[in-house]
């Protein structure tokens, strides 16, 4: 399955590669965090394709990246809320 993923990616344009990786990662991320899945996927897609491939192959590394992404998103959200309170 690994080589199938790699060879499918190799024949695609950089844009198509990101879309494919997103389509593959999204359901896995959704299973871990249904609420933030779309944001987490968007965030992870900013990483190198080779790292994204590694996450597809290793559920453990995917989980740790998803945890990191959730922490960043929550910190970001808290900051925005603090700024909004200041503005009011």
């Amino acid at each position: 399955e690994k080589s199938l993923i790699a060879s499918t990616l190799a024949s695609a344009s950089p844009e198509e590669q990101k879309i494919m990786l997103g389509e593959w990662l999204f359901p896995l991320i959704q299973a871990m965090n249904p609420t933030l899945a779309s944001k987490i996927t968007g965030m992870l897609l900013e990483m190198d394709n080779s790292e994204l491939l590694h996450m597809l192959e290793s559920p453990e590394s995917l989980r740790s990246k998803v945890d990191e992404a959730v922490a960043v998103l929550q910190a970001c959200q808290a900051q925005q809320e603090a700024q909004q309170e200041k503005a009011i």
Binding site: S38, K39, G42
Partner: peptide
């Protein structure tokens, strides 16, 4: 003070064009 971070990260939805693609150099 800058509101640019509010739209970050670009959300990914299956079957929908992903906004983050604008940041990828061919």
């Amino acid at each position: 003070s800058n509101g640019s971070s509010i739209n970050w990260p670009p959300e990914f939805h299956p079957g929908v064009p992903w906004k983050g693609l604008q940041n990828i150099d061919p």
